[in-house]
């Protein structure tokens, strides 16, 4: 019997998120039939964008689904899943999945595995999850007829694009008066000069820099190497730099030619946003900092001694 795995397509402004191909790859690792569920308004091109990565596209069309509203998307997907009973539904471990996956789990009486690094099938969906600050890996199995999982970005190989799958419009009624949350507006990130995702060289700093004033050293090195300044979450939370500089989960993912991590310990939330960089240099006082496990070159020393010496060396 074929095992059907659904992925929930993530999209914005009629653009399918690049993570959808990874999610399709994750679904292929445990299923032999992969369907993308697309919640959108009529006329959207997202279903056609998803079609090359999957075997079937199921479209839930309604004018109220153009932006993401948890309750309405859940209504549509739950209605469809109760009819068709897929073995599992996968979502990205990102704002969409972190909001929607537990809603689906609750309404389908399904077990949920979050932030999975790997999926297996062993009498049910098995997920490998990193726990206790990456010191341990936990294997967990969903014990309910339908399984829900969210997949870590970058953890699964993308499914290659193939022939476009058939697109079917599902007939699911959406009652938009039932929504108790409503999307009022989106605040877009400012995309301007020095866009961090386009930069060839990124110089990122972490809490180890100490304070906002000392953080200026990160910009100094960025200027010296012709790169763009970035930061880890704690720095943004402290308000030393604006949120659009944040690298990692809930920030941006970067893949520059050269990445400097200054005073960054290497929490998983940061690492997922930079581990694919071509060359990674880490400078951190703590020789045991996990960032050295991701870096190609490491210096376990005081950032305030090494970085000025690097700048002097570049200028000489």
């Amino acid at each position: 019997m074929s095992r059907s795995i659904w992925i929930v397509a993530e999209h914005q402004d009629d653009n399918l998120h690049t993570g959808a191909a990874e999610l399709a790859g994750a679904a292929r690792s445990v299923g032999d039939h992969v369907a993308a569920v697309v919640c959108c308004e009529a006329g959207s091109t997202v279903p056609a964008q998803a079609a090359p990565f999957v075997d079937q596209v199921l479209v839930i069309e309604n004018a109220a689904l153009s932006g993401y509203t948890a309750g309405l998307w859940a209504q549509g997907i739950v209605g469809l899943a109760k009819e068709s009973a897929p073995a599992a539904i996968l979502l990205p471990h990102a704002p969409l999945g972190r909001d929607l996956a537990p809603l689906l789990a609750a309404r389908l009486d399904a077990g949920l595995l979050t932030d999975c690094l790997e999926l297996q099938w062993e009498e049910g969906l098995v997920g490998l999850r990193s726990v206790h600050r990456r010191k341990l890996v936990s294997r967990e199995r969903v014990a309910t007829p339908i399984a829900i999982a969210t997949c870590q970005r970058g953890a699964f190989a993308a499914s290659p694009a193939g022939d476009a799958a058939a697109i079917e419009t599902a007939s699911v009624a959406i009652d938009d008066t039932a929504a108790r949350t409503r999307l009022l507006s989106m605040e877009r990130a400012e995309v301007g000069e020095g866009s961090i995702t386009e930069a060839e060289i990124v110089v990122a700093g972490g809490r180890g820099l100490g304070d906002a004033e000392k953080f200026a050293l990160v910009q100094e090195l960025a200027d010296a190497v012709g790169g763009v300044m970035g930061a880890s979450r704690p720095v943004v939370d402290q308000g030393w730099v604006p949120h659009d500089r944040q690298i990692g989960s809930s920030g941006v993912t970067v893949r520059p030619r050269l990445y400097f991590a200054l005073g960054i310990s290497g929490a998983v939330q940061h690492v997922v946003g930079m581990r694919e960089s071509d060359v990674i240099v880490a400078i951190n006082k703590d020789p045991k900092a996990p960032i050295f496990e991701y870096a190609h070159y490491g210096i376990a020393d005081d950032v305030f001694k090494v970085v000025p010496a690097v700048i002097a060396n570049l200028n000489s």
Partner: peptide, 30 residues
Amino acid sequence: RVESLGLTIPPPRELARMLEGGAEETAAEL
């Protein structure tokens, strides 16, 4: 709804090539 199948210690990742010496030396080598 979810059962634990056990915990394991992940295999250690390969460490960066660590540059040794004083700040002047490591900076120049980098």
